[in-house]
Design a protein around this nucleic acid. Sequence first.
DNA 1: ATAGATGCAAAGGGTTTGCACTTGA
DNA 2: TCAAGTGCAAACCCTTTGCATCTAT
Lengths: 129, 129
Amino acid sequence: MSVKDQRRTKQRSAIRAAFERADRPLSPLQVLEVAQKSAKGLGIATVYRNIKSLMEKGWLSALDLPGAVTVYERSGKAHHHHFVCDQCTRVFELSGCPARIDHLAGRQFRVRRHELVLYGTCAECATRL
Amino acid sequence: MSVKDQRRTKQRSAIRAAFERADRPLSPLQVLEVAQKSAKGLGIATVYRNIKSLMEKGWLSALDLPGAVTVYERSGKAHHHHFVCDQCTRVFELSGCPARIDHLAGRQFRVRRHELVLYGTCAECATRL
DNA sequence: ATAGATGCAAAGGGTTTGCACTTGA
DNA sequence: TCAAGTGCAAACCCTTTGCATCTAT
């Protein structure tokens, strides 16, 4: 019974560090790129396996945005929404939430949560275009 | 250079008919199943190709909800959002759109569009529970 | 020593594409 | 006739899995 032993490996540390240092949600591929800098030879399968276990531990939350691959971020943040850049596909966190957003649904619906995603061009890509 | 000729084929008719008769958005696989009844031998590739061309013609719109495969519905509706019932998974259309929703993103982002999905329980399921 | 962790490559889903054949106009 | 359209299978992209090897403990 009991929790599976979790060994301390450099791959695991590098993956967690990638999320801890990121200021935005990361895709598995983005995690791989960042983590490979400190864990040579790291494979994508290990990234997926670790993301899965970090999800199960509740350390990570998945963001399944329309039109983009699933990205992951550390759990426990305040309610917020996201901006997706159409050019570089990076996902940014936005703070705040429009008031009364749940009122859009009529009285016949009981709203429990919502997802809001803004799409467009980020500052960096706007400069490049 | 002109618009490509569009021939009338039984496959194309069957695919369009599937959408015309459906009372809800359909996935490519669901379209295949329905359309094969009137177009024997219809292949999934043809479904994808026709969906793509119907999208380009503006006849179809994609509904890319988080956590589900992309489904398609006939276009022509005004800008709207959706409510997804957690119990029955049906998707309902909502009318209207919160003012200033795009202002959530700071000045460094150029917002071009947005997606808003409300989740909860629909009236029917609320009664049943 | 030994079970957990990893890397690689192959396998899986869903979607797209190359190609030769079919068919509408 | 002959290019648009189609079916099939292979290719792709992202994610998962099998397996032999490696390694933290």
